[in-house]
Simulated scan of single mutants.
Amino acid sequence: MADVARLAGVSSQTVSRVSNGHPSVTESTRRQVVRAMQELGYRPNSAARALKRGEFRTIGVILFTLSSTGNVRTLEAISASAAQEGYAVTLLPVSVPTQAGMHGAFTRLGELAVDAIIVIMEVHLLDAATVDLPRDVPIVVAQSGEDDLYRIVDTDQVGGTRDAVHHLLDLGHRTVWHLAGPDESFAARRRASAWEQALREEDRAVPPLVRGDWTADSGYRAGLRLAAEPDCTAIFAANDQMALGLLRALHEAGRPVPAAVSVVGFDDIPDAGSFLPPLTTIHQDFTEVGRRLVTDALRQMRGEPVAHSRTLVPTRLVLRQSTAPPAGQS
């Protein structure tokens, strides 16, 4: 900094103000200092500045798995939103959500020095880990949950499910079958419960629930079972990957979509429009989820009041070519 000050003909204090973006520096002086920095190859010492300010410009992200489409897209959105705010992201995957694993992740984040933590993990997994989350670091949890101990940002699972079910009923289908996600997932349970409630409110029969594990393979296996049900003319799949396997199974079984069976997915993954046929699905706004997670984390970090409650990001139905009125109706 002293070398830059000598070359620019200013004080070290002025160099410091330029480095920190202080508004009191005139534009001509700022340009003079920046030219000197560039000529000397000067870079502000971010570690030293962080220690001085007590702010590291870094958000830590702990997550359980990167195999989930939702987790990957949420992480991508968090990274983009953090970058827009001038923050970096440090990622720490936890292979198994145990007390030891979670404690280790928080310890490592503490050693790496982060200003806030975003946890991409369903709350029941946090509870199962019996972890006392640190109280001196702002924490926001992404994913589904009903716990009020943490600030939670989630998409509207119930609203999206109801839109899917009512779309199929409005087309004239007598009822809607459901290909659910794994029972240990809160999101899967919430969608399955909303599906059943929507049918009962319309006084429709509730078919036996068929369960998958979020993968296309499980959707294919479930699809072979559903194809053998002659009364099955409409299916709501709990995610798009299972819907992909479901489409293949129905095709192989000679029950074309949507002529014989209508299918609605959930997520609106980037490839959903390229399925055969293109998939009608429920769009989750992962970009908005990531933005709100970062915003809530930064608000807490700055001492602004943020209630410990759930924020629901709205979903929307995306109509494509995998749904139609049942055969014999127009």
Rank of each mutant, 00 (worst) to 15 (best):
F275S: 05
R310A: 10
P278E: 07
G273V: 15
H308W: 06
G265M: 01
L312E: 09
M301K: 15
E288S: 12
L312K: 11
V264D: 03
G303V: 13
A260W: 04
V264W: 04
E304K: 12
T280H: 06
P256S: 14
D268I: 06
G254I: 01
L298G: 07
A272V: 09
R292C: 04
L293P: 04
R292W: 06
A307C: 03
I282E: 02
D267P: 02
D285N: 15
H251Y: 10
L250I: 10
A272Q: 06
R255S: 02
V264E: 00
S309N: 12
F266D: 00
P278I: 10
F286G: 01
G290N: 00
S274A: 14
A249I: 03
R291H: 15
V264P: 00
P305N: 09
M301S: 14
L250E: 04
A253G: 01
F266Y: 15
A260D: 14
R302H: 15
L312H: 12
L298C: 10
R255K: 05
R291V: 06
E304N: 07
G290Y: 03
V294Q: 04
G254Y: 02
P278G: 11
L279I: 08
S309A: 15
V294M: 08
P256H: 13
G290F: 02
V263Y: 00
D296G: 02
F286L: 09
F266P: 07
E252N: 06
R291K: 13
R302K: 12
A259S: 11
L279A: 08
G254S: 03
T311Y: 09
P256N: 13
S274H: 15
F286M: 06
